[in-house]
Design a protein around this nucleic acid. Structure first.
Lengths: 348, 348
DNA sequence: TTGAAAGCGCTAACAG
DNA sequence: CTGTTAGCGCTTTCAA
């Protein structure tokens, strides 16, 4: 029934022009109360529902934003996405999701827009395969906000936390606990590993400030930030070194969980034998055994800021200068570094 | 530059009509090779990109499907979503995500379509707040596939695993290990708890077949299937019962992880003191301490089947009869029931 | 094989 | 305050 009812049908029934119906439906302009009531009645009677496609075409915007992430099943992205969807909906925007599997070509395709022209009004992008330098090749007319830890070169915004500072704090926490062989898992010493490199910088900085040397063999690279990467790297640290570490700073909670897995299977105690710190504050880390001390980025702020900045770009007719936005973060000590008793004493 | 280039512009430059350009762009109909080349050249020169909005309006379809889930940050949904997005993309469809937070009103809104009219061509829906009976009020013209464990009453498809059988297997696994006080965490004895109730049925069936009585105090209800639900329920089983259970069947892996968390903080050993089984086979469960024995639904099959059925509905002009589709599942024994040694001996 | 032209359903100048 | 009307850019029927 409700199929194919158009604005015109309503207008006819109500005895007004389609312009007026449009105004009523969209709550635009002042419409006489009497007219409005009549129109509303016709709308209800006919079961009219506006055709979003037509509206978008006429308005020249889609009311959709795209969020491009490497992996959806990574808890960190899933949690972030949740916040982005909420924030976007409040503003009347729908969210289109795409996952790139970290593939550089796929990521590029999205930024070039290509066949998707006008399907979304802007993009929130979390790069993995693409390096900073690749971003400059993008379609400059496409409003863009980049998530993560790259440094922007203008033309788009960039929302993240201060990775160097956060990593510094995490490492200092470990050092402050008296650990002296602190390993780092997750470095990525190649072109697209900018985020990882910032964390390594913080790790080194902490040693520097403490007047301690960095033992290079304790800095382990991983291809990704997954559980399996953490498990493998931890095994390496345990098996191939003269002297094992007494603490590890992991560049993601997943890596930390993987490390924990290896430690458990080796019968090592955490934190007594080895203390573990993660990064991201995903929910898994709160319920793991033991719960994981972690760097907690304020995901809500990140999500909301990203959406807000993107919408600002979309609605602005003049080019908006690119901005670096630092969301807050904090270190949350849990049992994996301070032990169960201490952690329990600290409250829930 | 590439902004605002229309089909007409291309047609003009190539000296043909827009009809022909359209044919070339879409690869439709036979176009003379000479014409095609000339048009292609004009397209390239002008940097023409089709306006998806206009195309959709004219074609009367959006090329998008919506996926509606209660929570995006639930690993099970995130993993499923990943598969759905992949499958949809292969078919040229984009995926619009919405999360309902389990709110019945929100879920209804989506099924009624309302202001979203024509924004998506169909919906894959995972209900939480809505009961089976609510689904019949939906807009019948909207192609729909429902995920999860409800029983369909026609008009839409339904993709899930056989919950009763899976729960039966899980419980029998525990019983077969000689456990005699097997608890169940996750029952939802109210209208919208249909999925949970099927699992409880399997749990009871296992006892029945083994000639064992079900101790009602061991069947614990939870509002959700979250970690915190599992943690709380486990604490209850430990604290408020005369005799604690020696095994628990949890209705989700998250619940199992929560239970594990409580057990660890109480200093109880898994599986020696209490064996634990989960449900969903999320990645967290593979890396937890100990790894969790679980019911593993074939998520890939579920995702692909759901997309396939939905697209079939979308493209079919005549009504497609509703179908119940059972995806495969299997029980994966891990250390949380069979112990570390046995689990390790089983392979990776 | 290709052109001309009529919409798809809505928005928004431009009158009145 | 409301009607008229010209598009938005593409698809597609009907002719040629």
């Amino acid at each position: 029934m409700a199929k194919g009812v158009t604005l015109r049908d309503v207008a006819e029934l109500a005895g007004v022009s389609s312009r007026t119906v449009s105004n009523v439906v969209n709550g635009y302009a002042p419409v006489a109360e009497a007219t409005r009531a009549r129109v509303q009645q016709a709308v209800d009677k006919l079961g009219y529902r506006p055709n979003v496609l037509a509206r978008n075409l006429a308005a020249g915007r889609s009311g959709q934003i795209a969020v491009v992430v490497p992996y959806l099943d990574t808890p960190y992205f899933a949690e972030l996405l949740q916040g982005i969807i909420r924030a976007a909906r409040v503003q009347g925007y729908n969210v289109l999701i795409d996952q790139t599997d970290g593939d550089a070509e796929h990521e590029k395709l999205f930024l070039g827009r290509g066949s998707q022209h006008l399907l979304f009004d802007g993009v929130i992008f979390s790069p993995l395969g693409l390096a900073q330098s690749d971003l400059s090749e993008r379609d400059p007319s496409l409003p863009l906000v980049v998530l993560g830890e790259r440094v922007s070169d203008g033309g788009f915004d960039h929302v993240g936390i201060d990775d160097v500072a956060a990593s510094l704090e995490a490492t200092e926490h470990l050092l402050g606990l008296g650990r002296r062989r602190v390993a780092a898992i997750g470095d990525q010493p190649y072109r697209t590993g900018e985020a990882a490199q910032l964390r390594t910088r913080g790790y080194r900085l902490a040693h520097e400030r403490a007047g301690l040397p960095v033992r290079e063999e304790l800095v382990v690279s991983t291809p990704r930030f997954n559980r399996s990467d953490g498990a493998t790297a931890m095994a390496h640290l345990l098996d191939d070194l003269e002297e094992p570490p007494d603490a590890v700073f992991c560049y993601s909670d997943l890596v930390a969980l993987g490390a924990l897995h290896t430690l458990a299977s080796r019968g090592l105690r955490v934190p007594e034998d080895i203390a573990v710190v993660g990064y991201d504050d995903i929910e898994d880390g709160r319920y793991s055994n033991p719960p994981v001390t972690t760097v907690s980025p304020d995901k809500k702020v990140i999500a909301e800021t990203a959406v807000e900045r993107l919408l600002k770009r979309i609605s602005s007719s003049t080019p908006v200068p690119g901005r670096e936005i630092r969301a807050p973060h904090r270190l949350i000590p849990r049992a994996s570094t301070i032990g169960r008793q201490a952690a329990a004493a600290d409250g829930p």
